[in-house]
Amino acid sequence: MIEIEGLTKRYGPKLAVDDVTFTVRPGIVTGFLGPNGAGKSTTMRMIVGLDKPTAGHALVDGKPYAKHPAPLHEVGALLEAKAVHTGRTAFNHLRALAATHGIPKSRVHDVIAMTGLESVANKRVGGFSLGMGERLGIAAALLGDPHTLILDEPVNGLDPEGVRWVREFCRYLASEGRTVFISSHLMSEMSQTADHLIVLGRGRVLADAPISDVIAGATRRVVRVRTPQVQALTAALAGPDITVTSFDDGALEVSGVDAARIGDIAAASGLPLHELTPVDASLEEAYLELTQDEVEYHSEVTR
């Protein structure tokens, strides 16, 4: 369990994380989403004490990370930036980390096998591909068999097989009762992996809810309707907060009123309906809506 309270980080004039409070619970996968520069990596670095908070604190299982007698057994962290000496082999890198906690060499071999690094374990890390480096980072995070996993963009650079492995492995670890906290900007990835979402934008928490609630919370919920009598139905539906958009193919998109009500109104007016489909916003849309005002680096769309 990770408890974050009033966490704030200022780099000079830049407020990277702004009074953030949330809890990451065990037994589920919690996704940490947000646009570039939102402060996800900074928050994660503060949890393991690499950056000192300007204010607030982060606790892991009730204590600051550094106060645990076996930190690597408490938290396994894969951080964004590379964190390996390029001149050392993968095996020696893991062995050196393991030695600090008296973790046996057999465990080093185990995590190498789990992450599929056997064939390159005795090669120097400097020559590793992006994906192999990412696997080594995951291996290091798993080394201490931690209760809590903090993975900053763990699928970065992985091939599809690797992406699926990470997803299934995270779900498996959570099912064992561990706390799993993963950051990403990939909504599609999160929708398949996470149970709960924390969305960050410009250093502030924009949403902290189960993934289904985040989707449901999106205001853009519409019902697609088809009728031969477009004019009549549009008139019948007219009302405050109700918008009806018509499309070239004859479909209508109605928002502000649910499908059942539309059906009732049509029946009462004797209007035939050929289609009546509630369209959920995708997680992608929900997320874009949440963060549209909070994106730090807007890409200009040229038309």
């Binding site: 600090t100 906690h101 064992e176």
Partner: peptide, 26 residues
């Protein structure tokens, strides 16, 4: 999707490990 029940992780083989200065020297 299951909501968190306070499950405790099963005892693992690494439960006795400790960070120690001897380990750091090693």
């Amino acid at each position: 999707m299951t909501t968190a029940t306070e499950t405790t992780t099963a005892a693992g083989p690494l439960d006795g490990i400790r960070l120690s200065f001897g380990g750091v020297l090693n």
